[in-house]
Each structure stands twice: as C-alpha cells, then as structure tokens.
Simulated scan of single mutants.
Amino acid sequence: MNVTFPLPPAHLTEFVQRILVIENVRVVTPFKLPLYANGTPTLVFQTAKGQIKGYSTHLTLFGQTVRPETLSLQNDFTLIAYFFKPFVLGPLFGVAAQELTDHPIALDLLESSKVATLMEQLLHAPSTRAMLILIDHYIYSLVVQAKMDLRLIEFATASILKNTNPAVLQTVQNKLGLTERTFQRMFENHIGISPNQYRRICQFNSAFQQLQQRKFDNLADIAFKHEYADQSHFIRSFKEFTGIRPTDYLNFGRP
C-alpha cells in the first residue's frame, strides 16, 4: 500500500483543498476505511466498488460528515479522494449542502451521463496518474460552468436591481439567451427565490428606502416612482413584506 498527497493543480486550488491517494491495497479480509468529521465535502473514487450506507459504488460524493461512517471494500483497490473547500457543493454540483450532510450519494445520481463516461474512463485508466488527470478535468469542467453561472446570475441580479419593472425579466432572460425554465432554475439555485420574487423584493426595498427618508408628498408618489400599478398596489406589497401598512410604519414612535 502506498499513500500520497498530490498537490491540487493550480487551476483547481480555488475549490480543492487537498488530494489523497491510497494505491494498490491488497485486500485479504474486508477493508474498512473510517470516515470522520473533517469539515470538507469530498469526492471519493475507488477502482473496486465500496459499500457505504447500504449501497455500492465507485464514485461517491460526501457532504459534511458529522457522524462517523465506514467505507467497506472487499477487493483490491486504489482510492483517490478530492477534499473540497466547504462551500463547493452548491456551486459545483448544484446540490443543497444540507441534503448531503451525513448522507453521501453515488455521483451518477446527480448527473448520470457525464459521470458514466468519467467512471468508464477511470476504470480503464492505465495508471493512477491518468486517473488523477481524468478527475482534474472533470472537476475543472464543473468550475468553468460554475464561474459562467456566477457571471450570469451577477448580471441578472444587477440588471433587476437597476430596473424593477416587470418587463426587465424578459429583457434579461433574452440577453442571457436562456429559456424561461433555465432562468427560473438559475435564480432558485443561486438566490433561493424566483426571478420575479427577487424583482418584487428589489422594488419594495427601493420604495421602502424612499419612505424611510420621507422624500415624498404622498404614497402615490412612491408608487409611481417605483412603477407600482397604483397606490393600493404599493400598500399591498408593503404589507406583504413588513406585515404593516406604510402609514403604520411612518407613525412608529410618534405620540
């Protein structure tokens, strides 16, 4: 058995903390690898299928491991583990981190076709070095996509913040060249709410700031400036997000 810690390539260090390689393990009795809390999501590949939580796989994605766990292997194997930085699960794998806490998942359940190709290549790789290169390339493809997604969502949120008119959503979607469903999913994954809900919150917040500064003659002025349909529309929106009417807010602290 040979244990090494190759350095992550420079283009992955923003997301990968370290790499562990355990090569050429000869298994006589079942090999049990203890897994303890380490604060890092981890991608683990073994040339022999490993048993964990009742399922068997070659490629496993771990979230945070809080409770101790064991990876069991029955056959000779080489194991490669990529330890990620704590924030990686959402940006790279598109999964809510909490879903994987103490619940590792076979990677092919997240994106079956791409992972199936990777697994086939890994199982037929001529050397450990070749395996590392394959995993590097796979992770880098996720990094490139994640950075592209972040640029898209940054543009979208900034555009909506500047212009909260409902028509801005279609304009931004068209500029990004996205379908309505992809646009919706991008916001849900990165922001946690729909594009329209984000727009409505930006619209409310902008109007709320004007109300706080008392730079208006009447509520209709605020409604008009921030492109609400009318004063009643603004009042309904204000109450939705604060639980009170604008006049009640303005009267706070007054005798």
Rank of each mutant, 00 (worst) to 15 (best):
S113T: 12
V44C: 00
K114F: 04
L33W: 09
Q121W: 07
T78M: 15
A125K: 10
Y55Q: 11
H103R: 14
T70K: 13
L33V: 00
Q51A: 07
S112Q: 12
T42S: 06
I52P: 08
E69V: 03
S113V: 04
D136Y: 04
G90K: 01
L33K: 13
L79M: 12
Q74C: 05
D76I: 07
T117P: 01
D76N: 15
K32Q: 10
A48E: 14
D76C: 12
R129T: 08
L61S: 02
H58A: 13
K114P: 02
S72E: 14
G63V: 00
T29C: 06
V115P: 02
K49E: 15
Q121V: 04
G94L: 10
F62S: 08
F62R: 15
E99K: 11
L59Y: 14
I80Y: 07
I80C: 10
V44S: 11
L132V: 08
V66D: 08
L110I: 06
K32A: 10
P86E: 12
A106M: 08
S56R: 11
G90P: 05
S127G: 05
V88E: 00
H103G: 04
L59T: 00
Q121K: 15
D76Y: 13
I135W: 09
G90M: 04
S112W: 00
A106R: 01
L92F: 06
Q121T: 06
K53G: 05
P30A: 07
L118D: 07
I105T: 13
S72F: 08
E99N: 14
K53L: 13
L100I: 07
L59Q: 06
F84Q: 01
D136Q: 08
T40P: 01
L71K: 06
L61F: 01
L100E: 12
D136I: 03
L100R: 07
Q121C: 12
S56T: 08
F84P: 01
A130I: 09
A130F: 08
F77T: 10
G39F: 05
A96N: 06
P126S: 05
L71T: 05
L35K: 04
E99R: 14
T70C: 11
F83Y: 15
P126Y: 07
L109F: 12
P30V: 12
T40F: 01
L43Y: 09
L132Q: 11
R129A: 14
I52D: 00
E120M: 15
S56V: 13
A37R: 07
R129I: 07
Q121P: 13
R129Y: 15
T40I: 02
L109R: 11
Y82Q: 06
Q46A: 11
R129K: 12
A97N: 05
S113N: 03
G94I: 00
A48D: 15
L43R: 02
E111P: 01
I52H: 00
